[in-house]
């Protein structure tokens, strides 16, 4: 820490400056969420009245929209599906991309550059249309209209992404440590598991968080590969059920958005701990 170098006053000024700078960011990030919460708690009469203030609740908060969501739709089933699918798909993707990322970042063998590029290029394929041929594959695998259709297809966009993210992190890990381990008699797998992997934990946390979020939020595959209400994910279930032609159930839609975000927020809070601990440990010390 640099306590000794600068004085107390300077430190306070600097912290105040940082907080001041953070305020607009936090406001920008939170305002829409605040607004969604407010909307989800308003009665329809207030929601659709031109005289009322959209910014806060004037006529009392109500839980009707939440009740509607929980009692009149299969929201809880959708949430469970989303959870199972996201965890499995993210887990599978990490299991595949951690070794791949390490291999592409660290090892030297013929064609490593080509493989790296090939993995990446697949990411350029626009999903807007990719889902059409993929739907045929899903039917061929016999997993159409089940949650497995999503568990199997989500890694297609998670693996390239996580592989490349992890490559970046593996590169920031000093090579010397692994080399020492190898010289000391460790196998390559041991060097990967004992040395490189723990050091890349911030990267793995990042990949996990992003992977989880991407799968949780995925829309087009979840819409097209699954039809039964009992197998839908939260995002598809909420939009498919609460948009009825030219009538939108705004209150319940926003309630769905809020509730669908909660588990993922919890997961972030949980992971942020590890993230921060990685931070304070000074991360990479030889």
């Amino acid at each position: 820490m640099t306590t000794g170098v600068r004085g107390r006053g300077a430190r306070i000024r600097s912290a105040a400056w940082a907080y001041g700078n953070l305020v607009p960011f936090v406001f920008f990030a939170l305002f829409p969420f605040y607004f969604m919460v407010v909307t989800s708690l308003k009665s329809n009469a207030e929601l659709y009245s031109l005289a009322s203030a959209p910014l806060w609740i004037q006529r009392g908060a109500i839980a009707d929209h939440y009740r509607f969501l929980l009692e009149r739709t299969d929201f809880l089933v959708w949430m469970r599906n989303s959870l199972v699918i996201s965890v499995l798909a993210t887990g599978v993707s990490l299991a595949i991309s951690i070794p791949a990322g390490y291999s592409l970042a660290r090892l030297r063998f013929a064609g490593v550059g080509g493989f790296g590029t090939a993995v990446f290029i697949t990411y350029l394929v626009p999903p807007t249309l990719l889902f059409l041929p993929l739907s045929r594959v899903v039917v061929w695998l016999g997993i159409a209209d089940t949650i497995w259709a999503l568990v199997v297809t989500y890694p297609t966009f998670l693996v390239p992404f996580s592989t490349w993210l992890l490559m970046g992190y593996f590169r920031t890990v000093p090579r010397e440590m692994e080399e020492c381990a190898l010289v000391d008699g460790a196998s390559r797998m041991q060097a990967l598991l004992r040395i490189a992997l723990p050091m890349a934990v911030p990267g793995i946390v990042c990949a996990t968080l992003f992977g989880f979020t991407l799968t949780w939020n995925e829309f087009i595959y979840a819409l097209t590969f699954v039809s039964q209400t009992a197998n839908k994910t939260a995002v598809v279930g909420v939009t498919a059920d609460l948009i009825r032609g030219d009538i939108y159930y705004w209150g319940s839609l926003m309630a769905g958005a809020v509730l669908a975000s909660v588990p993922i927020v919890i997961c972030y809070v949980f992971f942020l701990d590890y993230y921060v601990s990685g931070l304070t440990a000074g991360s990479v010390k030889g």
Binding site: L132, P133, S135, L223, T224, S227, Q228, A240, I243
Partner: peptide, 24 residues
């Protein structure tokens, strides 16, 4: 089984079912 979804989501669903020759 009657599955209903928002009408704007139907085209994607139809295209996928026609392409896969499976679905409803």
């Amino acid at each position: 089984r009657v599955d209903t979804i928002a009408h704007l989501q139907l085209p994607a669903k139809f295209a996928a079912e026609a392409q896969a020759e499976a679905g409803h």
